[in-house]
Amino acid sequence: MSQRQKGISLLFRHEGYYEIACSIMEQLTASDVGALLASLHITPAQHIVETFLQPLRDFDPTMRQFESWFQDKCQILIIGPDTIRLSDRIFKADEYYKEKRSSQTRLEVWMIAIPATFEKSAEDVQHLRDCYHDSASSLQKRAKAMITGQKLLENNLIRQVSYTRSKPRKVSGEYLDVKVFNLYMTTTHRNLDTPNLIGLEFAGMEFGIEWNIKDPMSKDHCWKASHGIPYIEAASPRDTKVAVKDSWRHQQPQRLVFHSEYPDWDPQSTVSIPVGSS
Score class of each variant (00 low, 15 high):
residue 147 I to L: 15
residue 147 I to D: 14
residue 148 T to I: 00
residue 148 T to Y: 05
residue 148 T to P: 02
residue 149 G to R: 03
residue 149 G to A: 09
residue 150 Q to I: 13
residue 150 Q to W: 12
residue 151 K to L: 14
residue 151 K to Q: 14
residue 153 L to I: 00
residue 153 L to S: 04
residue 154 E to G: 04
residue 154 E to H: 10
residue 154 E to K: 07
residue 156 N to A: 12
residue 157 L to Y: 01
residue 158 I to E: 06
residue 158 I to N: 05
residue 159 R to W: 03
residue 161 V to Y: 07
residue 162 S to C: 13
residue 162 S to E: 13
residue 163 Y to A: 05
residue 165 R to C: 11
residue 166 S to W: 13
residue 167 K to A: 12
residue 170 K to W: 10
residue 171 V to P: 00
residue 171 V to S: 02
residue 171 V to M: 08
residue 171 V to F: 08
residue 171 V to E: 01
residue 172 S to Y: 13
residue 173 G to Q: 06
residue 176 L to W: 00
residue 177 D to W: 13
residue 179 K to Y: 13
residue 179 K to V: 14
residue 179 K to I: 14
residue 180 V to M: 07
residue 180 V to T: 05
residue 181 F to H: 03
residue 181 F to L: 05
residue 182 N to K: 07
residue 184 Y to T: 00
residue 184 Y to H: 01
residue 186 T to A: 10
residue 187 T to R: 15
residue 189 H to V: 11
residue 190 R to P: 04
residue 191 N to K: 12
residue 191 N to Q: 09
residue 192 L to M: 13
residue 194 T to F: 13
residue 195 P to H: 03
residue 195 P to F: 05
residue 197 L to G: 00
residue 198 I to R: 00
residue 198 I to N: 02
residue 199 G to M: 09
residue 199 G to Q: 02
residue 200 L to D: 00
residue 203 A to S: 05
residue 203 A to M: 03
residue 204 G to F: 06
residue 204 G to P: 01
residue 205 M to K: 07
residue 206 E to N: 10
residue 206 E to R: 09
residue 206 E to S: 09
residue 207 F to G: 02
residue 207 F to C: 05
residue 209 I to S: 07
residue 210 E to W: 12
residue 210 E to I: 13
residue 211 W to R: 10
residue 211 W to Q: 13
residue 211 W to P: 02
residue 212 N to T: 00
residue 212 N to E: 06
residue 212 N to A: 11
residue 212 N to K: 08
residue 213 I to M: 11
residue 213 I to Q: 10
residue 214 K to T: 09
residue 215 D to K: 04
residue 215 D to Q: 08
residue 216 P to R: 04
residue 217 M to Y: 10
residue 219 K to V: 15
residue 220 D to S: 09
residue 223 W to V: 02
residue 224 K to P: 08
residue 228 G to K: 02
residue 228 G to Y: 05
residue 230 P to H: 03
residue 231 Y to N: 02
residue 231 Y to Q: 04
residue 232 I to A: 01
residue 235 A to F: 09
residue 237 P to N: 06
residue 237 P to E: 07
residue 237 P to M: 03
residue 237 P to L: 01
residue 238 R to F: 00
residue 239 D to G: 11
residue 239 D to I: 13
residue 239 D to P: 12
residue 239 D to W: 15
residue 240 T to H: 05
residue 240 T to P: 00
residue 242 V to G: 04
residue 242 V to H: 05
residue 243 A to Y: 01
residue 245 K to I: 11
residue 246 D to F: 01
residue 247 S to I: 15
residue 247 S to R: 12
residue 247 S to D: 14
residue 247 S to K: 13
residue 249 R to I: 15
residue 250 H to C: 14
residue 251 Q to I: 13
residue 251 Q to V: 14
residue 253 P to Q: 06
residue 254 Q to M: 12
residue 254 Q to P: 01
residue 255 R to A: 01
residue 256 L to T: 01
residue 259 H to C: 04
residue 260 S to Y: 00
residue 260 S to D: 04
residue 260 S to Q: 03
residue 262 Y to E: 12
residue 263 P to M: 09
residue 263 P to C: 05
residue 263 P to K: 08
residue 263 P to Y: 10
residue 264 D to E: 10
residue 264 D to V: 07
residue 265 W to L: 12
residue 266 D to M: 10
residue 267 P to Q: 03
residue 267 P to W: 02
residue 268 Q to P: 03
residue 269 S to V: 06
residue 270 T to C: 12
residue 270 T to H: 08
residue 272 S to Q: 08
residue 272 S to L: 07
